[in-house]
């Protein structure tokens, strides 16, 4: 019993320590984002990596999500005789929920894991120590461009996801299942409000920050990992942790933001 309590306390302390470390990390990174000098080229490079190179996967997942929504929505709505509302159903669920969440999950899989592994390997092979000894701030040099790029890219990717998804729903609903095209888009115009778009925007901004934060911090603090973040295995384990943790965090925050903003 005592042993159990001891273990529990130890775990809690570890968790608290980790949270505190990550909190300080976030503030240091954000401070470095606003602190001059500003360099544009590293940011563009990161946007290319996090943003542009995710377009393909976002395009596909967006299209299929929209198509599935169209299909499922059609048969569900038909039971109530209201197929005409399909446009509204597809658009609202994409803009409010699925767009930001699925896009974030895809970016976590693509860029989050890569960032965590990259930083983790740099930590492992003393490259971060070397940066510090050269009086180059790793927060400014490594982290700040990633944060800016993440926060800029996520809303754009989400918007792309939404648009492609709506077109996917159109393809199924209108072209395949024969809903009137005017009805599809009219329902959409009538029901989507600025409020909904704002919610999607807030979510995508928060998710962008969240996923870069968790991936970068996990990699940066690789050497503090439980059981030691050593070598290739340590990096791979930490990267997996980062992906799981940021996916869960995205879903958690999705709920919180919905609850606050609805």
């Amino acid at each position: 019993m005592v042993q159990f309590l001891e273990k529990l306390g130890d775990q809690c302390l570890h968790l608290l320590e980790q949270l505190g470390r990550m909190g300080i990390f976030l503030f240091a990174c954000l401070w470095c984002v606003v602190k001059p000098p500003y360099k544009i080229f590293p940011i563009i490079r990161q946007i290319h990596f996090i943003g542009s190179r995710s377009i393909f996967v976002i395009f596909f997942t967006g299209a299929f999500t929209g198509m599935v929504l169209g299909l499922q929505g059609y048969y569900t709505l038909r039971k109530f005789g209201s197929e005409g509302l399909l446009g509204s159903a597809v658009a609202l669920s994409l803009i409010r929920e699925l767009g930001p969440v699925v896009a974030a999950l895809m970016v976590i899989g693509r860029a989050g894991s890569a960032i965590c592994a990259e930083i983790g390997i740099m930590r492992n092979s003393e490259q971060i120590d070397a940066l510090e000894c050269m009086a180059i701030d790793p927060y400014k040099y490594l982290m700040a461009p990633k944060f800016v790029a993440g926060v800029l890219s996520m809303p754009l990717l989400t918007a792309l996801f939404d648009v492609v998804g709506i077109l996917g729903g159109w393809l199924i609903g209108v072209v395949l299942l024969g809903i009137n095209e005017g009805t599809y888009f009219q329902a959409m115009y009538a029901s989507v409000e600025w409020q909904d778009i704002k919610m999607g925007l807030v979510k995508s901004l928060v998710f962008g920050l969240l996923l870069i934060w968790i991936a970068a911090a996990k990699g940066y603090f690789l050497h503090f990992e439980r059981g030691g973040g050593f070598g290739a295995e340590g990096v791979s384990r930490t990267t997996t942790d980062a992906v799981v943790l940021s996916s869960v965090a995205v879903l958690l925050w999705d709920y919180l933001i919905s609850a606050i903003m609805l």
Binding site: S125, E126, Q127, A130
Partner: peptide
Amino acid sequence: FQNAALFDS
């Protein structure tokens, strides 16, 4: 550094 710690990318 002992292992040179070059930036490998």
